[in-house]
Design a protein around this nucleic acid. Structure first.
Lengths: 148, 148
DNA sequence: CTTGATTTGTACGATATCGTACTATATAGT
DNA sequence: ACTATATAGTACGATATCGTACAAATCAAG
């Protein structure tokens, strides 16, 4: 019998895992062209944060192995949504820039998600989300730091 | 430019996705025999909730497609951690029972996770987790129900 | 009972994820 | 400059995930 604390943390991660899964499935239903959640997330990140990032920086931002990021980026490049350019400062690495097509695709996707978000926000209010975010960020930062 | 609400919900799902990923990686570092998070979760569920469930019930509990659950269960069966028996009540389906080996493996795994959990709980207190769970459950239930 | 629709599980194929090993470049220590 | 070590990215192979299509069993309507 595990102690109650263990059970509590298991439940936490279980809920989080299921939410991630449901979110992924829900999102992908809205993305055309077989675009997939990680690809969309990268596109979004390039706009939200900044483009001109290296693949490794992106891998770290999403906490995935760099091989996974290579694969994600190759899909985006094939779709014409990003440009992969040489990095003059460090010839080992590359720089990722979003294209006009990528930007347009991202905007269109977000627009098509609007109604979905509006519906969620009736059940789960923005205030609740605001209230929950600090906890989630703290948890994410802890797990990130604890990765030996 | 997406409206601030959209951005807020994106951030929420982004954090949750990363936490799920980090949790998975952290857990699998502790599981021997190449046991993988979904397999462990199923084992845990069979004890926590009850065994003698059908594969479809398990798939629904974890919100994964039934084909994914078939695959997960076949790994557990090959490892000798579950028994798959015929269901006399409904010959289309099967019933999943945990074996002694499965129970022992699960207990051992949880024990080996103890120190990790103890360490998390210094940074993220059980009280914080308790406080966050209702929100996460509500979100999960909403997403579950919204799957048309 | 019989027929048609539904449900459960699986086989199969496509793609995602990720660990290992490798190449090319950069950096540090001498 | 030279060598050892570290870092960025990729190729490759193993496995996970999941959609489609199917077979077997059940259920519903008559």
């Amino acid at each position: 019998m595990p102690d109650p604390n263990t059970r509590l943390y298991f439940e936490l991660f279980n809920e989080i895992g299921i939410i991630a899964q449901l979110n992924r499935a829900a999102l992908e239903r809205h993305l055309t062209n077989g675009m997939v959640l990680p690809q969309f997330s990268v596109l979004n990140h390039l706009i939200r944060v900044q483009d001109g990032r290296t693949p490794l920086e992106l891998a770290n931002a999403f906490q995935v192995p760099k091989t996974t990021m290579t694969h994600t980026l190759s899909g985006l490049e094939k779709a014409g949504f990003i440009d992969v350019k040489a990095n003059e400062r460090d010839k080992r690495s590359k720089l990722i820039w979003i294209t006009e097509e990528g930007r347009a695709f991202r905007d269109k996707s977000i627009a098509s998600l609007g109604p979905e978000i509006a519906e969620i926000s009736t059940a789960i209010t923005p205030e609740q989300v605001q209230a929950a975010l600090p906890f989630l960020k703290a948890l994410r930062e802890y797990l990130d730091a604890a990765r030996d």
